[in-house]
Design a protein around this nucleic acid. Structure first.
Lengths: 230, 230
DNA sequence: AGAATTACTACACGGCGTTCACCATAAAGC
DNA sequence: GCTTTATGGTGAACGCCGTGTAGTAATTCT
């Protein structure tokens, strides 16, 4: 598809990619706040104002970055999951969790970018790539829960489709028709359980308390898998 | 002790308190990034430079605020816990969790301040009030786990005191002499489990997905308490 | 009363996001 | 082939920001 782009379009895409690459580099070095248009432009030998031909505002640039970074996280998780046979549901859950943790420790600033508050007061539009990646992540966990549901779902009740977002419900029922509403609630609980220890660790609240957080996280995931009956 | 303060000290304490109060107000309105020395000074009819008589830098002010806010959170949690009789360990855990969640939803910016990244790249000194509050919070959860340990701790192994920070170990062994190393690991897992769903919710990742996150959180905490054997 | 400390102002510096008028050049139209 | 137009870029400006520094007025100490 690159061949179908005019010279102008190619240059434009290239410059845009360079802006994002430098922004990611700056973020990796100094956190999300280090993403400054002036610094990017300086590194590119440009003026800050020139970036406004590519991104309407700094927040737009960061929003785009969130989409890219989130997608990279989700793809790492999906790849790790798919390396485990479908029959081993517990193994797939563990693989997913470990992949997310490994990625997050390797890209802590990326984690902050996704799950933190890089743009204060900002609400991503519903069609942004960041939201798309989040849906993909959420779908991935839902799939794991759905696979575990025949065992995990015994006597789970107390939820109704009306308790959830209609779009989410439609999407879920189409992809996992056997999953009842309580399965969606369980999905969120699983998500939260994977997220909690990692968030504490990445933001430094476990710093120094325990020498090997990986062991604690692994135990927690084992307990999660066991609690699903696997 | 106020009587023993000189006029100067009284005025100083009062001004300092006003600075912090306005900073909290600004934060509540626009998030941690809205805390600007110039805005505070403007609201007080002062110059920005004047604040440097009270706080060496903006980060120092934010650090102090973290201490205040974290302390307020911990005190809310402790009060809720203490309203439940000691014999009802599960009830105390639930009370603690609900209190933390209620506080966090009422003060989302405070939550971001404590568990987010308000000062990029900043590492709080070990003797800051924020660290003290975090130790207090950690101790509170440890106490809950210690109370549940006779039931929850069956066959828990695989940890050693050497796996944890010496200071934490000394502090824990003194306060909860019956708790083995594996109890500390469980404490962190419980902490993470309480934190995960709340962090996702406060940072908007559950926004719109589920209409009543409180129910999901309550179910998760019930499952946690049940998994402890209570 | 005189000396020293303190709270504060005024101003300056550099960095930031953002806007705007202007300009060179590449693309498109005749 | 020449002209018109669109585009990516500059450079200066505005108003924020944190942070220093010199100076001033008032309070406190001796």
């Amino acid at each position: 598809m690159e061949a179908t782009m005019s010279r102008r379009e190619r240059l434009r895409a290239q410059t845009s990619a360079e802006i994002k690459a430098i922004a990611l580099k700056l973020m990796a070095e100094g956190g999300p706040d280090a993403i400054s248009l002036r610094a990017i432009a300086r590194e590119m030998g440009m003026t800050a104002g020139a970036i406004y031909s590519y991104f309407a505002t700094r927040d737009d640039l960061v929003t785009t970055l969130i989409g890219d970074v989130y997608t990279s996280l989700v793809e790492a998780a999906e790849a790790a999951r798919d390396a485990v046979p479908e029959s081993d549901v517990g193994g797939r859950i563990m693989a997913w969790a470990q992949a997310v943790r490994d990625w997050s420790l390797a890209n802590p600033e990326g984690f902050r970018l996704i799950y933190g508050d890089p743009v204060p007061g900002y609400r991503a539009p519903d069609d942004s790539p960041g939201i798309a990646a989040e849906v993909r992540a959420c779908t991935g966990i839902t799939g794991l829960v759905a696979a575990a549901w025949p065992v995990a779902g015994r006597a789970s009740q107390g939820y109704d489709w009306a308790d959830f977002d209609p779009g989410l419900v439609a999407h879920t029922r189409e992809m996992f028709p056997d999953l009842p509403p309580a399965g969606l609630a369980l999905t969120m609980r699983v998500w939260g359980r994977m997220h909690g220890l990692m968030a504490l660790e990445i933001y430094g609240h476990l710093r120094g308390l325990v020498h090997d957080p990986a062991t604690v996280f692994r135990d927690e995931m084992r307990d999660l898998i066991a609690s699903l009956g696997l």
